[in-house]
């Protein structure tokens, strides 16, 4: 009982001491807060270091999304890359939880430190691919999925990905 009481009194004292500490918040919008690069704000789609779309339309972001606000359709480009034919995020539903970014195997979808995206019309909160795609690598500068994965695309044949041996000659009898 007494230790409980002491704990409560100590709490009161600690809080009282905060009378003299500085406010952690800033008077936004006059003063802009510092937002770390990994802040979870507006979502973008990025390019890989070669300037090609990173998104391979694997649908993992969509399935990870707890509010189901991502919809896309896969397509295949002439060079063999998978890409989203359309990619739509309904930001009026998005809770900026960042699960899509965590799920993304190619670092394509990233959250940015921009949260100022209010609209008077809810329909303006629906972002299509042209609104989401940026011309840059975002937070991760070096990763390129197709350099790692075994799928062959134009300019990267079988056996040319990371850690791959040249294609096997099945007609060879050598051990």
């Amino acid at each position: 009982m007494f230790s409980a009481l002491r704990s409560q009194l100590r709490t009161l004292w600690t809080i009282l001491q905060h009378t003299f500490s500085r406010a952690e918040t800033v008077p936004y919008p006059e003063q802009q807060p510092y937002l770390a690069p990994r802040y979870r704000g507006r979502i973008v789609l990025t390019n890989d270091p070669d300037g090609q779309e990173r998104c391979v339309a694997c649908n993992l972001c969509a399935v990870a999304c707890p509010v189901d606000c991502i919809a896309l359709q896969q397509g295949v480009k002439q060079d063999g890359r998978w890409y989203p034919e359309f990619f739509r995020i309904n930001f009026s539903r998005c809770i900026l939880c960042g699960m899509c970014e965590e799920a993304c195997p190619t670092n394509a979808i990233q959250l940015t430190p921009d949260f100022e995206m209010c609209e008077y019309e809810r329909s303006s909160m629906v972002y299509e691919k042209e609104h989401l795609q940026i011309d840059g690598t975002g937070k991760y500068h070096d990763y390129s999925f197709y350099r790692v994965a075994g799928l062959a695309i134009a300019g990267k044949d079988k056996g040319e990905a990371q850690n791959e041996a040249p294609p096997v000659d099945v007609k060879s009898l050598l051990p």
Binding site: H18, A23, T25, P27
Partner: peptide, 11 residues
């Protein structure tokens, strides 16, 4: 409360 919680409150 704002003062004690290190923020501004209605200002």
């Amino acid at each position: 409360l704002g003062i004690w919680q290190d923020r501004y409150g209605p200002d």
